[in-house]
Write a protein that binds this DNA or RNA. Structure first.
Lengths: 164, 164
DNA sequence: CAGACCACTTGCATATCGCAAGTAGTCGAA
DNA sequence: TTCGACTACTTGCGATATGCAAGTGGTCTG
């Protein structure tokens, strides 16, 4: 995953940086699940990522400029991870990945709701979501629309429907 | 990479199937480079994929329904690999991957030309390309526009510029 | 009928993955 | 002030994946 320098093809370089089982899962959890610390990412991991793998990926993602790390002012031992602009620009990629997975794998219905909404919303929705992420992670002004709220509401509605 | 069944999230399922260093590189070469046989994929590999890894990925991609395999009628020993519809629907994903890599890694200028064109063309270009792939790989009628020709021409133009 | 070509396979060293357990320090309540 | 929970990890180790180099059995070409 480190710089092997095999080829200058942008698709290949993206895969060298992100082409593994876990990197984008971690980005997804920070992005869509707003998990901001090691503990949250570990405990609330849908896929039960191993602690050493998580530590390694946080290190790599930070080193490669997709995440930043800063101490939590309210707790001397806590660390807050934030997305960088480069990571925020992965939104369309993850949206497409969700859309493809929805069509060509057998996803659970509840967990597909967000992907479906993102797919239907298209670029305008992605841009609104990216604006919101810039607010949450980079200190940009809060936008009017909360896409994460919409996604979460849709997910919870699907959950409620399921349990009925 | 096999079915671990960790979570029904469509992004995760996509990563379980394609989240490794080589799978999408192979798909990319079949898709954009029109490499249709093991030998072509091995010899013309920009990234010098190892022969056993290539064999393994071709097996997996075929097993998971992204490629099909059929004998070459003109050569008893040759095998032709084709993209399935599921693989063709990875076009937008690969386009985004190229676009992201172009912005956030240090790609070579010549190899970025295709990614740039794909990014500028957007969904209409992707759809035209997918139509062409359906012709080349699934036997659909030949569309009027040849996106692969346009991409190839742009690449060769960039190469010529470089060597001047 | 020899030599190149075809699609792989095999052996083996190294790297990575992933489970389970451990570490060193901090915080909050009794 | 002390104890237990919580913080972000690290460590050990077996299992799996990667990747180089060489080999295999068959086919086509001059």
């Amino acid at each position: 995953m480190a710089q092997t320098g095999r080829s200058g093809c942008p698709i290949n370089l993206t895969l060298e940086q992100l082409g593994d089982r876990w990197s984008l899962v971690v980005v997804r959890d920070v992005m869509f699940g707003n998990r901001r610390s090691y503990g949250e990412l570990l405990a609330q991991s849908e896929e039960r990522i191993a602690s050493n793998i998580l530590a390694d990926r946080l290190k790599r993602l930070t080193a490669s400029g997709l995440l930043t790390r800063r101490p939590d002012p309210t707790h001397r031992q806590k660390v807050i991870y934030s997305l960088t602009e480069a990571a925020i620009q992965l939104v369309p990629l993850l949206a497409h990945m969700g859309a493809w997975g929805r069509r060509h794998t057998r996803p659970s219905k509840e967990l597909s709701v967000r992907a479906e909404l993102l797919e239907q919303g298209g670029a305008p929705l992605w841009n609104a979501f990216m604006e919101e992420l810039r607010h949450l992670h980079l200190g940009a002004p809060r936008p009017a629309r909360s896409v994460s709220g919409e996604l979460q509401a849709a997910y919870e509605k699907a959950l409620a429907k399921r349990s009925r």
